[in-house]
Design a protein around this nucleic acid. Structure first.
Lengths: 154, 154
DNA sequence: GTCGCTGCAAAGTATTTGCATAGCC
DNA sequence: GGCTATGCAAATACTTTGCAGCGAC
């Protein structure tokens, strides 16, 4: 279990083939838009807005509409290739890392950063399951001030 | 540290006096709207939308506008009396429990429930601080299917 | 050849903003 | 009495929806 998969891995033809297979299994179509969107999200790195994805995709494949970007991102999330992250309240971001990891959210500027740290969520998950909740993932959200905002406030 | 404060405590005159003091310290005004909104949030119990707060407040104090509800909730969050919770993507909810606790979010119906479980976030917080992030709070978000949705999907 | 995905445009909705007024301090 | 918060209304912006045509299978 690699905590920090290489971005290049996530956007290779290999990953593309996996997506194609997954789509076909669902009875879905393998379209250029979907392939490009997936690849772009992986290459952009981290925490992109739908708008950013749209801009980046448009450079490679013109005439891709924003609604298509939204629906494809939603699809990728269902397939587990992307995670939706709800930031401080303003933006909804998409995170290309499908592995479980945590987030730092700045309550001042809304920035979201990754936090690689081990957190033992097992007791919480057990407890959740005992209440009848089918827990799948657990991620920690740490709120506070990012380095820049902390300096500015002082 | 009481993990589950009595709701009545949170909405007594005592709490009201604390809010009044905090407001005055900030150079703010103690208005009936603010007092009623705070009280209503405490009494409603859990995870209310701004709209719900507005409806409940309106029963006691007519002509309270939705913008006032929003700004007051924001204010209460800054004062630490309420916590903003970002649910599955659709709704923004306000949680009257200011103590640190965790949430179960159903990715199907968007319901949010409290999860009382101890999670050791200390390593994550240490790590965050080492990167220059001024961490204040950490809360775990567990995603999955709530009891009802899990049953329905089967 | 069929059926799903895309693109375009338009709608829907939650939240924010501006300004005059009322009311707390 | 000064200054802040409120109320009202309108605006903003993000996201979703409907429908016709194209294209994957």
């Amino acid at each position: 279990v690699n905590p920090k998969p290489d971005a290049s891995t996530a956007s290779t033809d290999e990953g593309e083939a996996l997506l194609a297979t997954a789509l076909r299994q669902r009875g879905g179509r393998v379209t250029p838009q979907r392939l490009v969107i997936r690849r772009v999200v992986g290459e952009l790195g981290r925490h992109v807005t739908a708008e950013e994805v749209h801009a980046a995709v448009s450079e490679r494949l013109p005439n891709v509409s924003l609604p298509t970007v939204y629906s494809t991102l939603e699809l990728l999330e269902e397939l587990g290739e992307v995670r939706k992250v709800h930031a401080g309240g303003d933006a909804v971001l998409y995170d290309p890392r499908p592995d479980d990891h945590h987030h730092l959210v700045c309550k001042s500027c809304g920035r979201v950063e990754d936090l690689d740290a081990a957190v033992d969520a097992a007791p919480a998950l057990r407890r959740a399951r005992r209440t009848g909740f089918s827990a799948e993932r657990a991620s920690l959200v740490v709120t506070g001030l990012c380095r820049d905002c902390a300096r500015r406030k002082r």
